[in-house]
Nucleic acid binder design. Structure first.
Lengths: 317, 317
DNA sequence: TTCGCTCGTGGGCAATTACTCATCAAACAA
DNA sequence: TTGTTTGATGAGTAATTGCCCACGAGCGAA
C-alpha cells in the first residue's frame, strides 16, 4: 500500500509538473520552485509524464493524418523518404498533389550548393512534376535520364522529361538517346557502347537521388498504349507474374526483377544503388497499388511520394 | 487565390513541423533538414502551430489532490459533475486550465451518438474553452445560446461563443439575436415572441447540458465594463444583496434569483432545469468566490469546473 | 519606375532543457 | 546483520530552443 501510494504520488507529481509545463507553459525552473524540488527533478517529472503518456498531444489539421501514414510507411518499408499528400476524392487525375510534392522535393535537392547528380525517369507523373519546377540556375548539378527518350517509331518520346527539366533549372543534362526497349540483348549492348550512353550509364551509378514513376502492367498500361510493347508480349509477361515496371525494368509482386529476357532488352540505365542513393517513386491510384507495393517490398525504390488512400492501402495487409 | 494558397501552405507547413516536433518527437534541427529550411524557420513554424492552436495538449491523469477536492465538492453540493484543475499560482489568467478542462467535457458530450441539445452561455472563460475544441462533425446535435449575442451598442457581442463553437463542431446552432438586458419586462416579452427567439427558448428547455460562466458583480464586473449595466444600477443591485450572475440572471448570496425587476429585464433563455439537465459553471478566482458559492448553494448550477484553490475555498466554512 | 513597407530569413547569443555520472538512501533477501 | 538492488538526487555538461537583430525579397502606392 505504501509503495503503491508513493508510486501514485510520483505519477501525480509528474502529472502536475507536466500540466504546468505543457498546459500552463511554465519553465521547468518555475515548476521546480513551485513544487519545491530541484530543476532536474522537475525535468524528470515532466519527461516521466510524457513517458507514461499522461500527456497527450494532438494535432488538429488535415495534414496530421498524412504525416502519420508517412511515418508508418517509412517504418514498414525502411524508407529514406516518404511524402503522403491528401487525397482529393473528387479528382481522377493521377498526378494532382503528387506532382506538386515531387516538385518541392526536387527543388529541395536542386537548392543544395553541393554538386548533385539527379536521375529522372519518365512518364506522365514525372512530367507533371517537372512542369511545377520554378526557373532556377543550377550549374553545379547534373541531371541524367534513366530511360531512353526515343519512341517506338524513332521519334522523340512523348514525355520529354529531362529536356523540360534542364530547361527550367539550367543544369547540365544527359539524355539517353535510345528507345526504352530494344529488340535484343545484343542490340542493347551495342547501343550501350555509344559515348553519350556511356556518360549516362556512368552518371546513373553516381546519382545521389532518382525520381521515377511506377508503372503498372496490363494491356492498358502506358507501355502498351504508347506502343513500346505489343499486347501479346504484355499478356505473356503478366501471365508469368510481372506486376509492374520502373524505367522499363519489370518486376514481380515481390519486387524482384523478372528473370525474363525482357529485362535484357531494357536499354535504360540501371537504377542507382539503393544503398548510396535515394530512389523516390512517384505514384498513386488503384491501378498502381500492386506495382507500388511490389517496388517497395523489393526495395526497387527506397522513397515514395503518394497520396493518403494509396498509403493506407500500402499499410494494409 | 495565390495568397490564400500560400497562407494555407504556411499553415500546412506549421502543422507538419508541429507534428514532427510534438508527435514524432524530432528536434527542430531534424525538422529543418527534413523540410529543407533553416532551424530558425522550423522553430518559427513550430511556434506558429502552437500560436494557431493547431497543437492541443491534454493531461490524462486524475491528479489526486484535485480528485479529492472534486469528490468532496460533489458530495457537499450534490453535484452531477465536478472537475478541479491544478492552480497555477503564478498565473493571473482566469481561464488557464478551466478552458482546457471544459473543452474536454464539451467534447465528451459531443462525441455522443445520441442527439443532444447543448446550451452555452457566454463570457471570456467559455470563449477560451470553445477555442480549445477540435474540429468535429456533429450533425446529430444542436447547440443553443442561452444569452443574447447583441451588445449594448447594438453590435454583435464580444464573446462570439455560439458561432465559434458551431464553426468548430459543425452542428446546427441557435443563437439569440437579443441583448442580454432590455429596457423593460414588456420589451422582453415582445422580443421573446420572435420566431428565432422562440426556437431558442424551446430548445433551452430541452437542453441536456449547459455550459455557463459565473459572473461576479461590482463596478468592475464584466456586465459593467462591457456597458450592459450602468454603474448606478450595479451599485443599487449589490446594495440589495446581489452577489453574482449567470447568463444575466442575478442572484443573492444564497443563490436565490433576485426578486428585483432587473431579472424581468434579462432577455436570456431560462437556465435548463437542474432536474433534467447538467448545468456546468466555469469559474475560478478570488473575485468570483462568493458568486460561485452562491450559485452552488442555490443550485443554479449542478456542475462546476474550477481550480484547486477555488475548490478549497468552496469546501471551507 | 521607385520608394517604403511588410514579412520571411539566417546569424548569433542567451535561456532552457536533456543527458550522463557518481552518490546515496531505502527496501529486500540471505 | 549485511550485501545487493533499486531508484531518486544533484552536479556538470552537451544539446536544444527562444529571441533579437539586420538584411533582403516581394508588393503595393505614388
Amino acid at each position: 500500500m505504501a509503495r503503491r501510494a508513493e508510486a501514485n504520488n510520483r505519477l501525480d507529481d509528474a502529472a502536475r509538473a507536466g500540466w504546468l509545463y505543457y498546459v500552463a507553459g511554465r519553465t521547468q525552473d518555475e515548476i521546480a520552485s513551485a513544487m519545491g524540488i530541484s530543476r532536474q527533478s522537475a525535468q524528470r517529472l515532466v519527461s516521466l509524464a510524457v513517458a507514461e503518456k499522461l500527456i497527450k498531444v494532438r494535432l488538429d489539421h488535415p495534414i496530421a493524418a498524412c504525416l502519420e501514414l508517412a511515418e508508418r510507411l517509412k517504418d514498414k518499408f525502411a524508407l529514406r523518404y516518404v511524402e503522403v499528400v491528401p487525397t482529393d476524392p473528387a479528382s481522377t487525375s493521377t498526378t494532382v498533389g503528387i506532382a506538386e510534392a515531387a516538385a518541392v522535393e526536387i527543388e529541395r535537392w536542386l537548392k543544395s550548393t553541393d554538386p548533385m547528380v539527379l536521375a529522372v525517369g519518365t512518364g506522365r507523373t514525372l512530367k507533371a512534376a517537372i512542369d511545377q519546377l520554378p526557373p532556377m540556375e543550377c550549374p553545379q548539378h547534373r541531371i541524367v535520364s534513366l530511360t531512353g527518350n526515343i519512341g517506338p517509331d524513332g521519334s522523340a518520346a512523348y514525355y520529354n522529361v529531362i529536356f523540360s527539366m534542364a530547361d527550367a533549372v539550367k543544369a547540365r543534362h544527359f539524355p539517353m538517346p535510345l528507345p526504352v526497349l530494344v529488340s535484343s540483348p545484343e542490340e542493347r549492348d551495342l547501343l550501350h557502347r555509344q559515348d553519350l550512353v556511356q556518360f549516362a550509364l556512368q552518371l546513373g551509378r553516381q546519382a545521389n537521388v532518382a525520381f521515377v514513376g511506377v508503372g503498372e502492367l496490363g494491356t492498358d498500361a502506358p507501355l502498351c498504349v504508347d506502343g513500346f510493347l505489343a499486347r501479346e508480349e504484355m499478356d505473356r509477361l503478366t501471365s508469368t507474374g510481372a506486376c509492374g515496371e520502373i524505367c522499363g525494368w519489370m518486376f514481380d509482386k515481390e519486387g524482384q526483377l523478372l528473370a525474363d529476357v525482357i529485362n535484357d532488352r531494357v536499354a535504360s540505365v540501371p537504377l542507382p544503388s539503393r544503398d548510396t542513393a535515394t530512389v523516390i517513386g512517384l505514384a498513386k491510384g488503384l491501378k498502381k497499388y500492386t506495382a507500388i507495393r511490389a517496388a517497395l517490398t523489393g526495395r526497387i525504390i527506397n522513397g515514395i511520394i503518394t497520396d493518403e488512400v494509396t498509403a493506407a492501402y500500402l499499410l494494409s495487409a
